[in-house]
């Protein structure tokens, strides 16, 4: 299969700081590809280079078969971008924002009306099309930005933190929209996110980036498995006897006793837990409490980057106005 995006030791340096370090990557057609990483890991820099906003220091990449160094116009015509920060004109109506976009991207005039109607329907904003953007909620603006990004039928859609600042309901909606897009429009979607749940539920593959390099790249399920399965934690006064029992009858191999708790690492805790309870009851071992721990993307993330998510500090300072606007939006 032909990759939609391929990078060849793509590198970007800002002074002495290497934001993206000899990064090579292939993204296939039709994937939802997630790019994860702590702040300042180089996600946005990578995205900006792929969108031809930033010139790489060395290396290159192709997007839809076009070279990012020489074919700016062709790339821009064939990709859609939804930025992390709002980029709509709030003093214009939804319709006007879409119309402007259609003109900027030279969408055939005879198709503009029809396409606007269809993207508005897709993000369920038909009835608000003639309202000024300043009256939209944050989630609605985001949806309009996605609609706008689709107007020129891009082959690749870049979503930079698509659900940042949205409430849980809007986030859930946004995920539905993204899934639907992939299915209906046969589009490759590349998204960056800070939300591990988002990466887990949306992405076919994720790349975890740290210090400008890829530290892990696979399906979320594979990455989670690579951490070694589920953990069952049992509160027991006499932990050693349970350990002897479990190891003795071959139910589990990895059993640790620590602070009055027994931690059992197994491939599938949901199936094994009832058996363990039975065995303990039969042996007369009293269990105070029990809980399960399935490794999630958060664990994967921390495993590979060695720290929890840092919060918004390394980012380029947001303009005062944008900050004010954003607060108002919420």
């Amino acid at each position: 299969m032909n990759p939609v995006i391929e990078t060849f030791s793509l590198t970007k340096r800002f002074g002495s700081n290497t934001a993206v370090n000899a990064l090579s990557l292939r993204i296939e057609k039709g994937e939802v590809f997630g790019i994860l990483g702590p702040n300042g890991a180089g996600k946005s820099t990578l995205l900006s280079m792929l969108c031809t906003i930033l010139k790489p220091t060395s290396g290159t990449a192709t997007v839809n078969g076009f070279d990012i160094l020489r074919q700016h116009h062709e790339i821009r015509q064939s990709i859609g971008i939804v930025f992390q920060d709002p980029s709509v004109d709030a003093d214009m109506t939804g319709l006007e924002n879409l119309q402007m976009h259609a003109d900027l991207y030279d969408v055939p005039v005879s198709e503009v009306g029809e396409r606007i109607t269809s993207v508005l329907r897709l993000v369920q904003l038909e009835d608000r099309a003639s309202d000024y953007l300043s009256t939209y909620s944050g989630g609605m603006r985001r949806r309009l930005e996605i609609a706008r990004g689709l107007l020129h039928y891009p082959k690749v859609l870049f979503l930079d933190e698509p659900t940042i600042g949205l409430d849980p309901q809007s986030r859930e909606h946004m995920w539905d929209h993204i899934r639907m897009l992939r299915k209906r429009e046969d589009m490759t979607i590349i998204l960056t996110t800070h939300y591990m749940e988002e990466a887990d539920r949306l992405c076919d593959r994720v790349a975890i980036i740290d210090h400008g390099r890829i530290v892990a790249l696979d399906k979320p399920s594979v990455l989670k498995k690579s951490l070694g399965g589920d953990t069952i934690i049992l509160g027991i006064k006499d932990g050693e006897s349970l350990r002897a029992l479990l190891v003795g009858n071959g139910m589990a191999e990895k059993v640790e006793v620590h602070n009055g708790e027994v931690r059992v690492t197994v491939a599938n805790a949901n199936i094994l837990l009832p058996r363990i309870m039975e065995a303990a009851a039969t042996a007369g071992i009293y269990i105070d409490y029990v809980y399960l721990n399935h490794p999630d993307m958060n664990d994967v993330f921390i495993h590979y980057t060695g720290r929890d998510l840092r919060h918004e500090e390394a980012k380029a300072p947001m303009g005062k106005m944008a900050m004010m606007r954003r607060r108002r939006v919420r």
Binding site: C51, T52, I53, H72, H73, R76, Q77, I81, F83, D85, P86, S87, V88, D89, A90, H101, L104, Y105, D106, R148, G319, K320, M321, A322, R325
Partner: peptide
């Protein structure tokens, strides 16, 4: 500058124009 602060400038600058 206003467009830059509110982000709309980006929409224009990344377009093929």
């Amino acid at each position: 500058i206003w467009d830059r602060e509110f982000g709309f400038l980006k929409e224009i600058l990344v377009s093929p124009v």
